[in-house]
Write a protein that binds this DNA or RNA. Sequence first.
DNA 1: TCGATCGATGTAAACGTTATTACCCTAGTG
DNA 2: CACTAGGGTAATAACGTTTACATCGATCGA
Lengths: 334, 334
Amino acid sequence: MVTVHDVAARSGVSIATVSRTLREPHRVSDDTRVRVLAAVDELGYRPNRAASSLRRGRTGVIALVVPDIENPYFASMTKGAQVMCRARGYGLVVVDTTERAEIEDEEVRALRSQTDGLIIASSRLSDERLTEIADAAPCVLVNRRLTGPGEAVPSVTIDEETGVEAAVAHLYDLGHRGLLYVGGPSRSWSQARRSAAIAEAAASRAGLHLVQVSDCVPTSEGGRAVAREALATGATAVIAYNDLVAAGLLAQWTELGVRVPDDLSLVGFDDTFVTGLVTPPLTSVGVDLRELGDAAVELLLDRIDRPDANAEGNDRTVVPRLVVRASTAAPGAR
Amino acid sequence: MVTVHDVAARSGVSIATVSRTLREPHRVSDDTRVRVLAAVDELGYRPNRAASSLRRGRTGVIALVVPDIENPYFASMTKGAQVMCRARGYGLVVVDTTERAEIEDEEVRALRSQTDGLIIASSRLSDERLTEIADAAPCVLVNRRLTGPGEAVPSVTIDEETGVEAAVAHLYDLGHRGLLYVGGPSRSWSQARRSAAIAEAAASRAGLHLVQVSDCVPTSEGGRAVAREALATGATAVIAYNDLVAAGLLAQWTELGVRVPDDLSLVGFDDTFVTGLVTPPLTSVGVDLRELGDAAVELLLDRIDRPDANAEGNDRTVVPRLVVRASTAAPGAR
DNA sequence: TCGATCGATGTAAACGTTATTACCCTAGTG
DNA sequence: CACTAGGGTAATAACGTTTACATCGATCGA
C-alpha cells in the first residue's frame, strides 16, 4: 500500500505538504504542487479512506435506505441519488430492508454512526423512532413528513394533491362519472394521502361518484387479484395505487375480454418505466423519480456541508405530472 | 461519541478486554464478558468502523458494480447480494456505472483500495483491464469469464447453452420451423454467447430455419423499434435478447393487430418480473437472479475470509430454467 | 514444593491521515 | 539595518481500534 510517506519521500516534501496539496491545493506553492501531484500520479497514491475518516470524523459516505430495491420506484430513486452523490464526491451505500421495520431499525442504527447522513425512503418506522434517529444523525426523509410542531426533520415529499387533482380532472373532463380508486396498503403514508386527495378531488366535482377499495397488495399480482372486484363496481374509470397494480388490472382485464380504454379507462401512479411495457401504454401520474433521489441527496449534503446554515428550506416538495398515454379515453368511446 | 475507553471505564476493565470481548468472546472469562456486554448495551457503544478498518486493514465492505440499477435484471441481482451480505455481516456498496466503461474504470479504481473486494457485473471493460484489476484486489465477475489460460479470476456465469437449448427445443417441439432471434448489443458478452448457442441449437434440428437480427437496443423501446422488421422475416417464433425487448415487441405487435401466441410465439430471456406484467405473460428462460447475486457474494467472501484455501472452485455456473407461460403455442393454433 | 504452563487481563504501539503548532526564510517597512 | 509580517513548509499529536507482548495468578506435574 502506498501512503503519504511514500509520496512525500518521492517528491522531497513532508507528509503534511502532501496532504495539503490534495485537500487545499491553493495553500501550497505552484512548484511543490506539481511535484507532489506528479509523485501521486507515478505511485498511484490514493488516500486511505479509513484513516481519513478516522481523523476527520467524516466518512464521505451517505446511506440510502429503501424498502425494496427491486421495486422500479426505488430503483429509479436510487439511480438519481447515485448520480448526485458521484457529482458531489460522496459515496452511497444502498440498503434494502426487504420491507421489514425491524431490519430498517437495525440497519439505521448501525448506519447512523458510520456514515455522514441518512436518506430514509418510505419508512416503516414510527414518527417517534424517526425523530429520535434524526436527532442522532443528519437525516432526510422521502415520502414522509413528520407532523409534530417543533419537528424539523428535512423531507422530500410529493405533492399528491396536485397529481391526484390532475388525474381526476383528466378523467372527469373525458366524461367519466363513475370512478374507482384501487388503494394500496392502508398503513402506507402515501396511500393515506392519495386516498384523501382523491376523495377531496371527487367531492368538488358535480355528479362524480367515487368508490374506493383499499389494501390492495401493491404489485401486479395484487392488481390481478382485485380485477374482477373492480369491474363489479361498475365504474368507467379506475385509478390504481401504482403502475404495478395498474399493470395487473390491465393484464387480468385483457384476459377477461375487457378492453382498455374502450370499456374502461385506467390511470396509474408513479410513472415508472412499467407504463411503456404494457398494452396500451399506461396514463400515469408521477414525478421524475431520479429527481426525487437527486433532491434528497442535495438536501442532505447541504445540511452536512453547510451546517446550521438555514433551518428553513428543510422540505422540498416535488410536483408530479400527469402523463397521458393510451389507457384513458372518453367512456363508451368504441 | 462513545468509545472503548468509556466502556472500559464503566465495566472496570482495560480497553483491550473490551475489544476482545467483542471480537473473540471466548477469550475472556464469563463474568467479564457479561459485565462488558452490559456496559456496551447501556452506553450504546458501537465500534467505530473507520478506526477498525484502519487498524485491521479490512473494511468489512464489498462493492457491487452494475451497469444500470434501474434494469430489473441488476436490481434483482443486487437484492440477492444485499441479503447475502447482511447474513455474512458485510456491508455492500452498490455502484451504477450508467453503462459507461470510463465510469466503471474510474469507480473500480477508487473502490478496490477502499473495499475488501469487488463484484463486477456485466462489465464493459477489456479482458486486460479486468485481469489487472483482479490482480490488485479480490474480485468476482458476473456474466463474464476471462479466457486466457492461466487466468483465474473467479466468476459466476449462466449456462447459456442449456437455457437456449431448452427454449429452442420448446419451440421446435411445438412445431415451429421458422425461428427469429432478436439479439442485443453486439459488444455484449452475453449476446455473443446466446447468439452462438442459438445457432448451434438450431443447426442440430432438422428443418429448422433460423434468422438472426442483432444490435437491438436492449429495452422495450428497442423491441418496439424492430417489431415490424421481425414480422417481415416470416418467422413463426421469436426469441428476444431479454424480457424488455420481448415486452417491446409484444406491445408493438399488439398495436399492429398481431396476436401472441396465436400468430406468433415469443420467448424472452432472464425471467424478470416483467414477464408477469405483460399480456400474455411471457415465456422466458432465465436463472433466479437473486441467486446470481448470492453466489457472487459467497464466492467473493469465501476468497476473502479463507485466503488461498482453494484456487479451484473459482467459477460457478448457474443453470437457467425455461418457464413456459402464455406467449408460446403451436404455430397456426388459432 | 518449585518451576512450567496456561488463562485472563493490562500496556502500549501501531494503522494512515489531517490539523495544529512551530519554524524558517524572504520581503517589506520605518 | 533591524524588525516585523507572512507565506510556505515541517514536526507532531491526535482520531479509535486492534493486537503483539508483558504481566500476574493459579493450576498442575514431577
